[in-house]
Design a protein around this nucleic acid. Structure first.
Lengths: 199, 199
DNA sequence: GGGTACATACCGAACGTTTGTTATGTACTC
DNA sequence: GAGTACATAACAAACGTTCGGTATGTACCC
């Protein structure tokens, strides 16, 4: 029996079961019974920790977001290498990352349908771009990007490119293996600096 | 009452009602009764034309795909202008295009969960890149892109960029109004050619 | 330290609703 | 009258949610 006071830990356990169900069956297969079965518990447990299904989903996305933020990130020198590393962290280069991306892409449906979730999703990508931005700014300062570059525009472009690549790789993993994803990203980053030769 | 023999037309009517429901409530809100109500009919009509819900959804996606292919496209000179036009056709520059993209993004959840739909979606994006590719090849031939460019890579990058932009614009339309989407796309296309100055 | 009081954690069943699907009925066309 | 094109009604299954019940803790009193 779990000791008292690990209420939050239990909620996290539930959220991870939610995550596992989503990774396998998508939102269409996400039911309270499926989640309960996934963690070997009853639906009573779920309702004990969450007022309703919507709250359960929202918390699962929050937990995943937090785990994404706290996972071991690639380290790289400031400027372009750091930007590259941050974007590589997002691509589907490992099975775990692929499963994660699969769920995030799936979540876009419910997020678009529910204003509250949509707002949260907007904030998420907003803050992601906010974390990318300093790297772009550093790259400009270091002369790795043209002096006239609009930092916000470059950041938004890089974010869009990475997310688009995630989607295409999810549907056609054979055509977008990790090596090609990396190569495409490198090509994109290289093209941002007109001075560098395409080697 | 519809005349006899327009069986396919009626199926298309149904699919467009499906589309409208999806645009407003996502797949979580897609029920046979909702579709029937949307077109002022009964569920009996739906089952008369489709064996089950899955077939109904699949056909709706096919019809939308066909409509996407046959819609009035921008015309532009071969090479980069044509590529730009083709990508602009995909962005959320009008309310209609936004609604369309919203549904496509939503469909990614079910598509990822169902192997049959996933395969179809893969083919769709495959053929889309196939339609983009000639423009890239023409741009290389015309000297608008570096002679050494890998046509497939550039095509894939452009497709990914556009789709990523679609997603970000859907969640944060205020930050990605049509003008900025166009500007970001132009910036991306300009960066593909190292020779052109950033004006 | 035993006994009472109460909160927490969870199960398992039940509730009412909604779902996709099927069956039946009706009107119109050829 | 056979067949198409629907509406209407009914179906069982599955859904989210509610709820009574039980087990297990902690807190306090004597």
């Amino acid at each position: 029996m779990p000791a008292r006071g690990d209420h939050d830990a239990r909620r996290r356990d539930v959220s991870e079961a939610v995550w596992r169900v989503l990774a396998e069956h998508g939102f269409g297969g996400l039911t309270l019974r499926a989640v309960a079965a996934e963690m070997g518990a009853s639906t009573g447990l779920l309702t004990h920790y969450f007022p309703n299904k919507k709250a359960l989903v929202a918390h699962a996305l929050d937990v995943a977001d937090e785990r994404t933020a706290n996972r071991p990130l690639r380290t790289a020198p400031p400027g372009m290498p750091a930007l590259r590393a941050a974007l590589l962290d997002v691509l589907s280069l490992t099975p775990a990352a692929t499963a994660m991306n699969r769920v995030w892409v799936s979540s876009w449906d419910v997020s678009l349908a529910d204003p509250a979730l949509a707002s949260r999703q907007k904030d998420r990508y907003d803050s992601w771009r906010g974390r990318l931005r300093p790297h772009v700014a550093a790259a400009v300062a270091l002369g790795e990007l043209p002096a006239g570059s609009d930092v916000d525009d470059v950041t938004a472009s890089a974010a869009a490119f990475a997310h688009g690549l995630v989607v295409h790789a999810l549907f056609d993993p054979a055509r977008f293996p990790p090596g090609r994803q990396t190569a495409l990203l490198d090509g994109f980053l290289a093209s941002l600096n007109p001075a560098s030769p395409p080697e």
